[in-house]
């Protein structure tokens, strides 16, 4: 028996909007620790990892580990029927091949049940070892989304370089080139407006902007984003989900042959 009750149902709505463009079908894994998902995009260039810890749910009952295969587009269609202030409960009986999403309005005067058939998805799970990163940039998520959007109108790959000057985003295309430098800035009114750069050593990597732009669909989840770079690893773009967990995107770099 699975019954997960999330008072801040809007988080789940935003999570689906954040991942459904990158991944079509995926398994949601439920265990005592939480509700998670790991999936690659169809071209195996990017990977998304979601974790919603059990403590973040008002009620979290998961009698035994369960993996539920779903089409994320269909889940998104159902969750769009939930109000942004609704309480969302995910329910599944042991052995049943359906999952139910229940939406309760804040004053309990409207209760909706959306039931969906589960799918058999044999997804490949990748082991992601903890790593030390040569540079970690923390910046306003809206800022990062704006940079990725602006640069993709000029070119389709971005070189992200971190030096002691700051973090530079560069691209080039048929119409010309663009360079955006963000410097560390801690003197801001609100901490979420700060740009903080931790650099162990300078690093520069090249990535496809199309994937970074799909990662920024997670912007509504968090005021800030962290970008972790190492010359021999995929970039990790992380949006924390307040008090619950995170959505992490991993993107393999492009190299000069």
């Amino acid at each position: 028996m699975l019954e997960l009750r999330l008072v801040q149902g809007s988080l789940l709505k935003k999570v689906l909007e954040a991942i459904k463009e990158l991944v079509t079908d995926a398994n949601f894994d439920c265990s005592a620790t939480g509700f998670s998902l790991q999936a690659m995009d169809s071209s195996h260039v990017a990977l998304v990892a979601l974790l919603l810890r059990s403590e973040g749910f008002e009620h979290y009952r998961c009698d035994r580990n369960l993996s539920m295969g779903m089409n994320l587009g269909n889940v998104s269609k159902m969750l769009r029927c939930a109000g942004s202030d609704d309480i969302i409960t995910i329910k599944a009986d042991d052995g049943s091949d359906t999952v139910t999403f229940m939406f309760e309005s804040p004053n309990q005067d409207k209760i909706a049940d959306f039931e969906m058939k589960l799918m058999d998805i044999d997804s490949e799970h990748l082991g992601i070892p903890d790593a030390e990163y040569q540079a970690i940039v923390r910046m306003p998520s809206g800022e990062f989304a704006r940079i990725c959007k602006d640069l993709s109108s000029i070119g389709d790959t971005v070189i992200i370089s971190v030096t002691k000057e700051g973090v530079k985003f560069s691209t080039a295309g048929d119409i010309g080139t663009a360079n955006i430098v963000c410097r560390q800035n801690k003197t801001v009114d609100k901490p979420e407006e700060a740009t903080v750069i931790e650099m162990q050593e300078p690093v520069s990597l090249t990535f496809a902007l199309r994937y970074l732009n799909s990662f920024t669909k997670a912007t509504p989840l968090s005021e800030t984003v962290s970008i972790s770079l190492s010359s021999d690893l995929p970039v990790v773009v992380e949006y924390k989900i307040a008090d619950m967990g995170y959505v992490r995107y991993y993107l393999a770099p492009k190299i000069e042959e």
């Binding site: 260039v45 799970h125 990748l126 082991g127 070892p129 090249t206 995929p234 393999a252 492009k254 190299i255």
Partner: peptide
Amino acid sequence: TEVQLSIKRFYRST
């Protein structure tokens, strides 16, 4: 030319 690497080059299947 630029070559896009696969994520599977960095993380092994479990």
